[in-house]
Structure formats: C-alpha cells, structure tokens
Simulated assay, not measured.
Amino acid sequence: MKNFIKNRKGFTLVELVVVIAILGILAGLAIPRFMDATISARGAKVAADLRIIETALTLQYAEKGTEAKNIQELVNNNYLASVPTPITAGSKFKIGDYIFVAKTSSGGYEIKNDTNNHPRATFDGNTVEKYIKGTADNASKN
C-alpha cells in the first residue's frame, strides 16, 4: 500500500479547485478590458475614416481646385479607394474620453459644409472634433 501512495501521480481535488478559481479570477479581470478595447477600436476606425476622407478632400481641392460634393466623387476621382464602411448602427464606440452610440438611422460617412461653407467629413452628422470634445450626439463621459 505504501508503494501505491508514493508512486501515485496527479493532482488532488483541492489543487484543481484552486487552479480553476485562479483562472476564473484572471478571466473576470481580463474580459472587461477586452470589451473596452473593442469599443476603443471602433472609435479609432471612425476617427481614422473621417481623417482619411478629409485628406482626400484636401488633395482634390489642391489638385483640381474643386471641392467634392460627396464621398463617391472622391472615389470616382481616385482620391479614395472605396467608400469607407461605417460601423454597425447601434454599436458603441469611444473617441478620447467619450463613448458614443452609432445612430440606428445612420447616414454613415458623409460630406457636409461647415459654418464657413467648407466641406467636412462627418459620421452621423458629427465631425471628428465634435467626437474628441464630446459635443457630438449621444455622448457620455467614460
């Protein structure tokens, strides 16, 4: 009987329970961070798309002397490869310290004239500056 106990290999039930508890605690800490990373990634996509569209607007104006009326015009004139795909309506996204929700009746990315009558890239009718300042629609402080 002594040889059987000495040669026994494996884990006790207590050891297994402790390991499972530790893994559960680590998972509980990691999952909220991954959820926040997804929201931040969506915000980075929106901000990057808005800046890319505005760069294309500037390029067309610099080269042709005309301002684009819509995003498709930028694609047709080869300043954008394609119209950026907006995030799904109802999705949360974070830019800076603010969290926003994409409108369900989202117009996606558009070009609208600002108060100085210059074309600006918008998402749900808001410029990237409005998102950064938290003055866009559906803003909530993080």
Rank of each mutant, 00 (worst) to 15 (best):
Ile52Lys: 14
Ala37Thr: 10
Pro86Ser: 08
Phe123Thr: 02
Thr66Lys: 03
Pro84Ile: 11
Val46Gln: 01
Ile25Met: 13
Tyr61Met: 09
Val19Phe: 05
Val17Pro: 00
His118Asp: 04
Gln60Thr: 07
Leu13Val: 14
Asn142Leu: 13
Asn116Trp: 07
Gln60Asp: 06
Ala41Glu: 13
Ala56Trp: 12
Phe93Met: 08
Thr12Asn: 07
Ala41Asp: 09
Asn116Glu: 09
Val14Gln: 08
Ser140Gln: 12
Asp124Phe: 14
Ala47Gln: 02
Thr122Ile: 09
Thr85Gly: 05
Pro32Met: 10
Leu59His: 11
Leu50Ala: 04
Ala48Cys: 02
Val128Glu: 06
Glu129Leu: 12
Tyr61Ile: 00
Asn126Ile: 03
Gly65Asp: 03
Phe100Cys: 02
Phe11Arg: 11
Glu15Leu: 08
Val14Arg: 11
Thr38Ala: 14
Asn138Val: 07
Ile5Tyr: 12
Val83His: 02
Ser91Arg: 12
Ile95Gly: 00
Glu67Ile: 00
Ala68Lys: 01
Ala89Ile: 10
Ile39Ser: 01
Ile53Asp: 00
His118Lys: 15
Ser106Asn: 12
Gly96Ile: 05
Arg42Trp: 04
Ile31Tyr: 13
Asp137Asn: 15
Ile99Gln: 09
Gly65Met: 08
Ile71Ala: 00
Ser140Gly: 05
Asp114Glu: 03
Lys133Tyr: 12
Tyr109Ser: 04
Ala41Tyr: 07
Ile111Pro: 00
Ile52Glu: 14
Leu80Phe: 12
Pro86His: 11
Ala37Gly: 09
Ile87Trp: 03
Ile20Ala: 15
Thr12Pro: 06
Ala44Ser: 15
Val19Asp: 07
Arg8Gly: 09
Gly24Val: 04
Asp137Thr: 14
Ile95Asp: 02
Lys94Val: 04
Asn77Val: 11
Leu16Gln: 08
Ser140Ile: 13
Leu13Glu: 04
Ala47His: 01
Ile5Trp: 10
Glu73Asn: 06
Val83Ser: 03
Glu67Tyr: 11
Thr66Glu: 06
Val19Asn: 07
Asn70Phe: 12
Val75Tyr: 08
